[in-house]
Computed example of a mutant assay.
Amino acid sequence: MPREYVSGFQPGPVAQRIFYTDFEGNPGDPDDILADGLDGGWAEREPAAIELLNDESAHPADRLLACAALALWGSPAGYRAVIDAAHHPERVVWSDQSVDRWFGTDNTFALLAEEVGDSYEIAVERGTSELRREALAALVPLADRYQFERRLVQAMSTDDIRALAEEVDAVIGSGIDRIRRRDPMKFDLDTQIAGLIIVMHRVDQARAESRAMELVSAPPNQRALRELGNTANMATAPPANRLMASVRVDLERALELDRSGSEDHSGRVGHFGHAMETLVTLQAVFTTHDGPSAADLADFRYRIGSLVAANARTLHNYVYESFYAATDALVDGWLDPSLRRSAVQLLLDD
């Protein structure tokens, strides 16, 4: 559990004794002490860790560390705490006690997923493998709403993925729906869903390839496209004409809102922005898959030129907002400005 991710606080006396003092009585790093516990030291410190986990007066960060330690040590109490937290995420007391460095959003579930994943061997030793699997099963459905980075997909063995295939497929589907709707997210949902598709590919290639096509058609950001492109033999290219039609529809909707005098500024710029993202996706399909020919792509970009020009006011808003997104990455995170730059570059090329 990377300590640098946890908000600054002074550990309480119990946490200091069991997580900041090594097994020889010297000051230590929690990461090292948790790892050393796997060699048998867990038995000595598990009772105190359980008490700390259940102590409502303790600092939430101390309780998070106790839950992480118990999960890593294959403790039934740790697994049950993870399951309870996953079933009731809105009630978790340690929310925001660990924050992702890129997006500045809560990643406590990511840390717990990592510890559950790393407990594979000790769970076998302690006879708690079934509870470990239940903890993973509880975490998977959160992947369309909570930040996991790559830790959830790395936590699951091939056997885990095979056993949880239905849960993984379900959250992939709901995640793609969120991406299609452009639901505001505080983390890179697109790449998180792409990662789940990739692990699904280990056990069910046909279903993974079908989900990959759905994701690319949504479309996702460029990082997610690259993630999918690295998966051997995965047919991720959607029909090019579907992407071309999507670009045209979004440009027409943006223009309709503009000409109607609508005050829906975000909707107007949103449709234009989605058209630009889809245009970038179309370009990526051309360069990495059996997509449209160079001549077809050039012809399409020429034909939508008049629609882009007719959206001059919205184009100005889009470029203006893109500038601020690029100069202050906290607005959208560091991935969205990159995508916007790509779209603007395509416009400049034309």
Score class of each variant (00 low, 15 high):
G8V: 05
P13Y: 07
A15I: 01
D22R: 09
P27F: 12
D31P: 04
G40Q: 10
G40P: 08
E44K: 11
I50A: 06
N54A: 13
D55I: 03
E56A: 15
D62A: 07
S75E: 01
A77M: 04
A77I: 03
A86F: 11
H87K: 14
V92G: 00
D96N: 09
T105Y: 10
D118Y: 00
L131C: 06
A135F: 01
V140H: 01
R151C: 03
D160S: 08
A165P: 01
V168N: 01
D169M: 03
D169N: 07
A170F: 10
P184M: 12
I193W: 01
R207I: 02
R207A: 04
A208G: 00
E209Q: 11
R211W: 12
R223L: 10
A224N: 05
N233A: 12
M234K: 00
M234A: 14
A235D: 12
L251G: 13
L257H: 15
G267P: 03
V280L: 12
L282A: 14
A284Y: 13
T288H: 11
D290W: 14
D290G: 14
G291I: 12
G291Y: 10
F300Y: 14
G305V: 07
A309C: 07
L315I: 09
L335M: 10
A343H: 12
A343W: 04
L347S: 08
